[in-house]
Simulated assay, not measured.
Amino acid sequence: MKPLLLLHGALGAENQFEPLLSLLPDTVPVHSLNLPGHGGAPFSDEAPFTMEAFADQLLQWLQEKNLGPVNVFGYSMGGYVTLEAARQQPQHFGQIFTLATKFAWSPAGAQHEIAKLQPDVVQAKVPQFAEVLRQRHAPQDWRELMRQTAHMMQQLGAQPLLTPETLAQVQVPVRVAVGDRDQMVTLEETVNAYRNLPTAQLQILPNTKHPLEQIHWPLLTQALTHYFAYA
């Protein structure tokens, strides 16, 4: 049975997957990690805060752990990072399941997302969310994480990493999933990614929004165990 790696999204952390752990079969070896700046992990002094660097860091982590091929559930940014890593070194991956991964990046689209990533505004208007981020990423500064995430999105808008051409190079089996009520990721961009990936499946989760905290965990567990054939 291949191990399962859980990879979080932007402004996320590995502890967000705790509700999922108790629902997965006990026989499944589950791993997770915090990308730099997330979940208390330090920012890298050697690598920039970019999708490319995150993919490199994921590959380095897999090499260090020596787990053999792993199955991956990548949520949002975690799915983007995983697909780029698998494009480069497919030997580390069994199957990949992405959920709520944004594939359509443009300058205008990036600016739309960046507008939501203003630490002072978040602190003033949504102090509860600011406190969640503070606790989630301590001792790192959630404000700095938000600023760097905004810069990364600006870079993606100018030069997307996953294009129809690069998606076509991903030889690992993938299931791309999106919630039918996701307000950040469209069904259209998810279908386009599915069509460009050579060995892909498509799944739409009903009554599902973008935030991981609002996921119906039993529904997601059923989808994962079905796709990865975990008994």
Rank of each mutant, 00 (worst) to 15 (best):
S32I: 01
I114V: 14
G179M: 02
F43T: 06
Q95I: 05
H216M: 02
A41E: 11
G40F: 08
L197S: 04
Y194K: 06
Y230T: 06
N196A: 10
I215C: 12
N34E: 09
H8R: 13
N71L: 11
D141N: 15
Y194C: 11
W61M: 08
Q140C: 06
Q203F: 01
A138L: 04
L6R: 06
L4Y: 02
H210L: 07
P36M: 07
A229E: 14
L20D: 04
G79D: 06
T199F: 11
Q95R: 14
W217D: 01
G68H: 13
E64R: 15
T225C: 15
P160R: 07
T98V: 13
T221Y: 06
T163M: 03
V28I: 10
P139Y: 11
E188Y: 07
L224K: 06
E213D: 12
V176S: 04
L187Y: 12
N71Q: 13
A223R: 05
V30F: 07
V132G: 07
L187A: 14
Q89G: 00
Q222C: 09
A13Y: 10
F43K: 07
M51F: 11
H137C: 03
H216N: 14
L83Q: 15
P29V: 09
G109R: 00
P48F: 11
R134G: 05
N71W: 04
G74L: 12
Q60L: 14
L205C: 05
G94Q: 08
Q111P: 01
N15Q: 11
Q140M: 11
A41R: 12
Y227Q: 04
V126R: 09
R87D: 02
A229Y: 05
L167M: 13
Q57T: 03
